[in-house]
């Protein structure tokens, strides 16, 4: 029982991480149809922001957390301004390839100016502590990750429901032209979406970095692949889908980790991608996606 609960907490925390990243991807995709390959680099930027802050002027690991999140949000704004604005109304292909290019550039900038080797980053000590409740001992980080993700999702829901920008984002995901006819600036809506995706990626980054204790130029690639999978699983562009897809993926991964014999666990990611591939073939719009007929208006 204790083992079961520990693994459940573990699964939820992994799922939360994927959900945070997938949500960011989904928000941007739903509004401008961009498959943001460079989303993983937001994590990397957050990581290096924390690393530099700690190494230079702010040796307090507590301050590293908001700096990481802010760094990711800032990077998201810069990506949008510098690269994605120029291709805003272009095809999905152009978007996916541009984002791919941005991702390569960012990785290599860190290789050029920092190093390929991992660099250690210090996070507050309590993140690596354990919580004991009666018989049960679980890592603080895992509990916190689930709690913070839940709060972040709740905050996002409030923004989407109650604020003008939130309503505009929901409206823009279906009909951007009509949103502009309300006098709402396209740039404002799109930038807000990027900032939100950056903040969510930054939050995920804090947890990822606390777990790894180090940053390297490629640290964003694996998480973003998982986030893609979560998004596709839930139906690209669906926000609920992204959350459900992320949690489902986390649970599935931990389940594989726990139940598979040792020699097969090395194949875990291959199995995950394989299963997702099969799901996609059966449900091309994802498990929760809306079926889009050919000839439908592209939102």
């Amino acid at each position: 029982m204790e083992y079961f609960i520990q693994q459940l907490v573990n699964a939820l925390s992994v799922g939360s991480e994927y959900a945070l990243l997938a949500l960011g991807l989904a928000i941007v995709f739903s509004i401008i149809g961009l498959v943001n390959f460079a989303h993983g680099e937001l994590i990397t930027v957050a990581g290096y922001a924390m690393f530099f802050a700690a190494a230079t002027w702010l040796p307090n690991p507590w301050l590293a957390l908001p700096i990481g999140i802010g760094g990711a949000a800032l990077a998201a704004i810069v990506f949008e301004k510098v690269a994605f604005r120029a291709i805003r109304n272009a095809s999905t292909n152009t978007g996916i390839l541009t984002a791919f290019g941005v991702s390569i550039i960012v990785q290599n900038v860190f290789i050029i100016f920092v190093a390929t080797r991992p660099k250690p980053v210090q996070t507050p000590d309590f993140l690596s502590s354990m919580i004991t409740i009666g018989e049960l001992t679980v890592p603080t980080l895992q509990v916190l990750e689930t709690v913070v993700t839940t709060i972040a999702i709740a905050a996002l829901l409030i923004i989407l429901k109650k604020t003008t920008v939130g309503m505009a984002m929901r409206a823009a995901s279906k009909d951007f032209m009509a949103v502009r006819l309300m006098g709402i600036k396209a740039n404002w809506v799109i930038q807000s979406a990027f900032i939100i995706s950056g903040i969510l990626a930054g939050i995920a980054a804090v947890f990822i970095i606390s777990r790894r204790g180090a940053v390297d130029p490629f640290m964003g690639s694996v998480p973003v692949l998982k986030a893609f999978v979560a998004c596709v699983l839930g139906g690209l562009g669906s926000l609920q889908g992204a959350v459900i897809g992320g949690v489902a993926l986390g649970v599935f991964e931990v389940l594989l980790q726990v139940t598979l014999p040792q020699e097969i666990t090395a194949y875990r990611d291959a199995i995950v991608f394989g299963v997702v591939g099969l799901v996609l073939v059966a449900f091309p719009q994802g498990l929760l996606g809306r079926k889009v007929e050919l000839g439908d208006k592209e939102a």
Partner: peptide
């Protein structure tokens, strides 16, 4: 905006 309420449409 089909998925938004009447209130939200007016607000936008």
């Amino acid at each position: 905006f089909a998925d938004l309420s009447v209130a939200e449409n007016l607000h936008l």
